[in-house]
Amino acid sequence: MLTLGIETSCDETAVALVEDGRLVGQQLASQVDQHAVFGGVVPEIASREHLRLLPVLFRELMGESGRAPEDIDVVAVARGPGLLGALLVGVSFAKALCLSTGARLTGVNHLWAHLLAPSLERELPFPALGLLVSGGHTHTYRIDSATEFELLGKTLDDAAGEAFDKVAKQLNFPYPGGRHLDNLGQESQPDTALFPRAFVDNPSLDFSFSGLKTAVANHIAAHPHLVLESMEAESLERLSAEKRATLAKVCASFNWSVADTLRIKVERAYRKAPDARAIIVAGGVAANIMVRAFMKDFADSHGLELVLPGFSLCTDNAAMVAAAGELMARNGKYHSLDMEAIPRGRTVPLDWISV
């Protein structure tokens, strides 16, 4: 089975081919430079870039893989959640391709695709506990199969990745700033009393990082010398040793607050899935070194297998969409051409047509 994956949910335009669980090829274009001047993603710009880039990337993928559009059995497309305009570009392209080639259509939940991404590197053990930590979502799931996800805890306001982005912006770090917070934080030991752990003084499984974000904003306002003079990448290299050490302490402390909050919530979610064989951690923040270390400690202490995607599979990509789509197609889960794109804030429906 040859599956084409299409990803346009935010600011990454990507296509990939997966055949029988093996990645055949992929093409990805990042829009970081276009959005960097605004300090975040501008939806209209993202949509226009997807519209411009998607046909080009598709032709390049077909040419490099030596495949023809008629060879594609399944077209898997990220249908949501995400930016509606951006999603519509990918969904429309997928439908047109299915209509012209006769391929079957499978709409993929972008969040599930992140958690299924490691299937490209290894077999996934089920049942599993899933932790998705991305820019827009921080969720925990019980996962019984590639098509059976039970949401245990969800984002109430700011997701972990969003908190990283906003703190980095307040410090005037180069965009995207999360990796700079991670890298600089590794140069210091955290002050565990500096920032609160977010939304943990309750029995809830849900996540809220707005309080942590506010605490960091207040700290930065009280210490304005922490803010970089410019957003240029070179500004981090020009820091004095004293300022670099102070900033590293702040970054390490923020990283710790996020990582320990995730650990606490995962501990609670595990009580809802005590028969889990593994914990799967995915999403952009799954590349964070401290988060990975905390999740390894959790897995080891509970006798669970830790499943982490490679760094290239943590951020948005089409390989994960193709992999998830192939798994769903093998379970007979398809969509008709009237499938809708689902924006952030709405639940992606389980409206498959089983064949």
Rank of each mutant, 00 (worst) to 15 (best):
C98D: 08
E70Q: 15
V167R: 00
A318T: 07
V75K: 02
S301F: 02
G39K: 03
L129K: 04
L239S: 08
L129A: 06
D191M: 07
Q170V: 04
K249C: 14
E232I: 01
V348H: 03
S100N: 08
E326H: 12
A163S: 15
F173G: 01
E12M: 03
S134N: 04
P203H: 06
L115K: 13
G21I: 09
D297E: 15
G161E: 07
Y141L: 01
S235L: 10
P203W: 03
N317P: 07
Q31C: 11
D338Q: 10
R122A: 12
M328I: 06
D158Y: 12
L327N: 07
L53C: 09
V91W: 01
D275M: 02
L2C: 07
A78N: 13
C251F: 01
P196G: 10
E49H: 14
T8Q: 04
M295W: 11
R292F: 13
E229V: 13
L132R: 01
A68T: 14
C98N: 02
V250L: 15
L2I: 13
V216L: 10
N255V: 03
A14Q: 03
F173D: 00
I279A: 02
I264M: 11
P176H: 11
P69S: 09
V15A: 03
I353K: 07
A36N: 12
V258M: 12
L87K: 00
S47G: 11
D297I: 11
F195T: 05
L152H: 10
L313V: 07
A329F: 11
M295L: 14
L184H: 04
L115Q: 10
A86T: 08
A160N: 02
V266Y: 02
C98L: 03
N255M: 13
G310V: 09
N202H: 06
L111P: 00
F207T: 02
A222K: 15
A259V: 03
A221I: 10
E121F: 01
T192H: 12
R52G: 10
K265G: 05
P174H: 06
E64G: 05
L129G: 04
A76Q: 05
H335V: 00
T347A: 14
H114Q: 08
A282G: 11
I279K: 02
A117C: 10
A324I: 08
L236I: 08
P69D: 02
R292A: 11
A222M: 13
I289L: 12
L212G: 04
D351L: 06
S240I: 07
T140L: 05
G310S: 15
V56Q: 15
L87M: 07
D20P: 05
S100L: 14
I6D: 00
V307E: 00
E70C: 12
P55I: 11
